[in-house]
Design a protein around this nucleic acid. Structure first.
Length: 423
DNA sequence: TCTGGGGTCCTAGGACCC
DNA sequence: TCTGGGGTCCTAGGACCC
């Protein structure tokens, strides 16, 4: 019998904001998406006030004012760095681990020889919080799906104390399934929730009882795997060596609609720079690139339009200059005047290792020179992102995001390091 | 006035092959 | 008159995750 643990940081972004800002402790805190658009993280106090996940800021303005809710713009430099610290603690603790998201980590506890797994988990939980300042909850189960489910209950139940082990208490599994609403099962999203509820399936227990053939027909093999995992058979193994990315994307919603071609082009070029950096950082090259630009889908009265175009490189590349030249051609080809553009993005596709693709007939004629890109990447690694650039885009332009309540980069920028005084 | 960004996997259908 | 069977590859769209 396999044993998986899921360690999940509680209200991760809100907890990160609190780390270096004690004035936020005990107060309701929300963290907003880019452009300060909608809520993407809430402290327990904010949840208790009824602030929903994904709620647009303009809809909760009144609640925020009335209850003195602290509002933070998202600060990914901070969250990414804190995440790395948490993952380091967790990775060192277990025989094998899989970083599942910025705030979640699966552990494989099969080979762990300890007298009481629950006690071990409680200790890990305390250590993680003491060493990183981030509170976590731990769920344990015979499959990843059950570990997820246990984690949710560990968070909710005061009695559980942040840890719930279903693996060594199999008699708790059935009650746990009964207590889990169908929409909270890992792998069941909004659409499937509606479909399942219409057919009388309201809890994880109901779902686990559903006939295989029916699930297979309505939800494909993906749904069937979830059902089997709820019943305790492993369908999702621990992936401690994550497969390399197949695509990478850099896109943004602009702070305001933009009509000007040069401005949109500027934004697109900065996305090219960032996307190419990501791909080089992963040691990969891209086989193709896609560009999209679209209007604001929420602007009911404005004309809607979506532009997109793509191109294949005859030799896979990660060179910003080459990608930029290609994207510029696509941009000129698809551009249309007269629309208020609100979002754009660049996708790098068919990612692979350099040299993995078959050589083209003309390769010998154009040996790539990657010295400039390496130099730029090294400078930026040392002095901070954006220190050296190709001059493809203005540094500060109109399309920039709104981030009105941005916290300092406490741990990743020298000038922002918090100071303490003993006086 | 004000609604994020970045991914994965699966499936169906069409083009094309012999 | 009679009009197969079995593949592959690609793409778009839909579901999901955080």
């Amino acid at each position: 019998m396999a044993t998986f643990a899921l360690v999940d940081c509680n209200n991760f972004y809100a907890s990160c904001e609190r780390l270096f800002q004690p004035r936020l402790r005990g107060r309701p805190v929300v963290v907003l998406s880019n452009n300060d658009g909608c809520v993407i993280a809430r402290s327990n106090e904010a949840k208790a006030l009824g602030v929903g996940m994904g709620a647009p800021m303009f809809k909760i303005r009144k609640l925020v004012d009335e209850h003195d809710v602290a509002v933070c713009s998202s600060n990914y430099a901070l969250y990414g760095d804190i995440s790395e610290r948490v993952m380091n603690v967790l990775g060192a603790s277990a025989p094998a681990h899989e970083i599942y998201s910025i705030d979640e980590c699966f552990l494989d506890l099969d080979q762990l020889a300890v007298p009481s797994l629950a006690a071990w988990c409680r200790h890990l939980r305390e250590t993680t919080t003491r060493w990183t300042g981030i509170p976590v909850s731990i769920g344990v189960g015979p499959t990843k799906t059950l570990a997820k489910l246990a984690n949710r209950l560990a968070k909710k139940s005061a009695r559980a104390g942040g840890v719930l082990d279903l693996s060594h208490n199999p008699e708790w599994i059935t009650p746990a399934l009964h207590k889990t609403p169908i929409q909270d099962v890992w792998g069941v999203g909004r659409r499937w929730t509606v479909m399942l509820q219409e057919r009388g399936i309201h809890t994880a227990f109901d779902f686990a009882e559903a006939p295989d053939a029916w699930v297979r027909q309505r939800m494909g093999v993906v749904g069937l795997r979830t059902v089997h995992e709820l019943r305790g058979s492993v369908c999702h193994a621990l992936e401690d060596q994550p497969p390399p990315r197949q695509t990478t994307c850099c896109s943004r919603t602009f702070g305001t609609a933009i009509f000007d071609k040069a401005q949109v082009h500027d934004a697109v070029m900065s996305f090219v720079e960032r996307a190419a950096e990501k791909v080089r950082h992963a040691g990969q090259v891209a086989g193709a690139v896609q560009l999209f630009v679209r209007t604001d889908p929420f602007a009911q009265n404005a004309p809607q339009k979506s532009l997109s175009g793509s191109a294949t490189f005859h030799r896979p590349t990660s060179d910003t200059r080459e990608i930029a030249a290609t994207v510029r051609r696509i941009f000129d080809r698809v551009w249309r005047e007269g629309f208020g553009w609100r979002k754009a993005g660049v996708l790098l596709l068919d990612l692979g290792l350099p040299g993995a693709a078959p050589a083209s007939l003309f390769d010998a004629l154009e040996a790539p020179d990657d010295r400039l890109m390496s130099a730029i990447d090294q400078i930026n690694a040392r002095y901070g992102r954006g220190s050296a650039r190709l001059g493809l885009a203005q540094k500060d332009s109109e399309w920039r995001m709104r981030r009105e309540n941005l916290s300092p980069s406490f741990t990743t920028r020298w000038t922002d390091i918090p100071s303490a005084s003993l006086a």
